[in-house]
Structure formats: C-alpha cells, structure tokens
Amino acid sequence: MRTVVRGLLLAGVLATGLPAALSTTAPAAAEAGTGAAARTAGDYDLGTIRSSRKHSGHAKAKLWITSFSEKHFQAYGSLYDLDRHPGHCASIRAEFHYLKGGSGRSPERRFCASYGRSRTGYLLESRGEIRRVDLRICVADGRRGPVSHCRTETIRDEDLAW
C-alpha cells in the first residue's frame, strides 16, 4: 500500500508540480495515516476506541474499517499515545476470526509519542474473509515491554447493519 501512495504522490508531482500534488494527495494519505489504506465510500467510521486509564494517561485509536465482504478486511486509522510518561506507548492489535474457521492475529502496532508528535497511522489486515474482529488497544511499557490497561472492542458484520 505504501508503494501505491508513493506512486500517487510521484504521479501528482510529475503531472502538476509539487504544491498541487501535496494539496490533493497528501491530505487523504495523512488522514488515513502512514501505510494505512485509502478511505473509500464503503468504509465505516467507528469513531474512537480507548484503553483504560493508567496513572498518567491512556492510548486511543481513531478507527475505520472496510466491509466484511472484502477479500482482505482492513482496520486502519490513527493511533495516539496520551500517556505523559516517556517510557509508555500506545499499542493496537487485531484478532481476526475467519469465515472458514480458525483465527489469526495481526502484528502489533506501537506508537511512542516523542518531540511533540501526537499520532501515527496504522493498518491491520486479515488474510481472508472474516466474520468477526477483536481490536485490542493497550498502554505498553516501551517499544518492546509488556502491555497493560487493555480494552478489547469486538466488531461483527451484523453490528454494522444500522
């Protein structure tokens, strides 16, 4: 997906010049986050999910998902580290429950705020069609330490039929 975004930026630069390319393509990529899927009309905005609070803050994620009928389901958005301690990070992971049985986990994504940056993009993608996804957001101790103060949000296709 990064290659596609880079290709779009490069094509925009070649066709219209740098300022025009940044004004049209970059906001969409920045809104979805680095490496995240481009938002389409069929995607669902599920708002914000938060971890439980730790003594000085919490983690939160802005969440967008694709349709459950997609061959590869995607959850994407922005991940925020809202814990004031420098050694704490925000962590998000998805567990996918597949239509044909079994489950699988996405790689964990972590973000540790530093130098005034408040968010980073994330993309969690399944390897096939799913019936349910469990998104787990936590506060993590550093980039490799254990996670705590987690909250899990379960999303099913029937939950989206508003």
Rank of each mutant, 00 (worst) to 15 (best):
H97C: 01
C138S: 13
A59L: 03
D141Y: 12
G42A: 12
A94S: 08
H149M: 00
G116E: 13
H149Y: 03
M1V: 11
S114M: 09
G12P: 14
L135D: 03
L10E: 15
A94N: 05
I92K: 02
T120D: 12
L63P: 05
D159M: 06
T40R: 15
G142P: 01
D141C: 00
L82I: 00
A26Y: 15
L160E: 14
V133D: 10
A30S: 09
F68V: 05
R156Y: 01
H72N: 12
P27C: 04
H149D: 00
A30F: 13
R151Q: 02
A20Q: 15
C138F: 00
C112K: 08
A28V: 14
F68K: 01
M1Q: 12
L82D: 07
C89M: 09
L82N: 06
S103H: 10
D45I: 04
L22A: 11
K71C: 02
Q74N: 12
S106V: 14
I130S: 08
L22Q: 15
I155Y: 01
Y76R: 02
A21R: 13
F96E: 15
G87P: 01
R119I: 02
R131D: 02
R119W: 13
L8F: 11
T40W: 02
K60S: 08
T120N: 06
L124D: 09
G42T: 15
A26M: 11
L79K: 05
G102W: 15
E158G: 05
D157E: 15
E95N: 14
I137R: 00
R119K: 10
L8P: 03
L63N: 10
G42M: 07
C89V: 04
G128D: 06
A113E: 07
D134Y: 10
L79W: 10
S51A: 03
G104A: 09
C150H: 01
I49P: 02
